[in-house]
């Protein structure tokens, strides 16, 4: 007998006391918890996102439009002395318009090795959703975000969130917006650990500097 049959047989015998129940799952499961914690205006939701991002040591910037964004990104890259930046294939070219040619653009290519990506200083991406209550950015591998590894290996990640349209209040709202068939990465602050005396320390394997730009008027 295969281990599959063994396990399924054991499960069925173990559940001999359970009476079969045909109630559909969603009907059998009351979800009495909240969709969102408290009522907030859109502007307040964006503000909360900024607060919670900052609380977990992300550096938060705001700008109203693309021209301003382009200057901001150029300044952030220059401020770190970045000589190269990873660019996902679908990133709006205007975002990097002010970034000079001295900063090498590195494309997100399947053929790149991890060691090559390790030599790149920064990465600029968009995002899929941002969650205000938890200060979380979710990337789903869309063309403006690229493969998961490009936001992992460089030590400096600049993530642009379009506000208010990409911002949701809560985790349930984020889950509803996301497509599970895409590879998803939920990011809440820079890489951190609680492994030394159960205290949060920033900066282990992922980017140690996370900068979030809230782009828009809200």
């Amino acid at each position: 007998m295969s281990d599959r049959d063994v396990i399924l047989g054991r499960v069925r015998r173990a559940l001999a006391d359970v009476t079969p129940d045909g109630t559909p799952y969603e009907a059998a499961l009351p979800r009495d918890y909240l969709r969102e914690h408290g009522e907030r205006s859109l502007a307040r939701t964006v503000e909360l996102l900024a607060e919670n991002l900052a609380d977990y040591r992300a550096l938060v910037h705001r700008c109203a439009g693309v021209p301003e964004l382009s200057a901001l990104i150029a300044g952030l890259l220059a401020g770190r002395g970045a000589r190269s930046v990873l660019v996902p294939p679908g990133l709006d070219g205007a975002w990097l318009a002010d970034t000079g040619a001295e900063v090498t653009r590195v494309a997100d290519e399947a053929a790149s090795t991890a060691a090559e990506l390790d030599r790149v200083d920064s990465v600029v991406t968009g995002c899929a959703v941002a969650v205000a209550e938890t200060g979380t950015l979710v990337l789903d591998g869309s063309p403006d975000q690229g493969r998961r590894r490009i936001t992992l290996i460089p030590d400096h990640h600049i993530c642009v969130v379009r506000v208010p349209e990409q911002v949701v209040g809560s985790v349930p709202q984020a889950v509803a917006r996301l497509d599970p068939r895409r590879p998803l990465t939920w990011i809440s602050g820079p890489s951190a650990t609680s492994d030394i005396e159960l205290n949060r320390v920033e900066g282990v394997h992922g980017p140690r500097t996370l900068e979030v730009v809230l782009l828009g008027d809200a």
Partner: peptide, 21 residues
């Protein structure tokens, strides 16, 4: 924490030219 720094979710593999992971 309100949320841990990283959560990864993946569904099988992808063999398209945009393969990730």
């Amino acid at each position: 924490e309100r949320m841990n720094p990283y959560t990864s979710m993946w569904t099988g593999t992808s063999d398209s030219d945009r393969a990730d992971g």
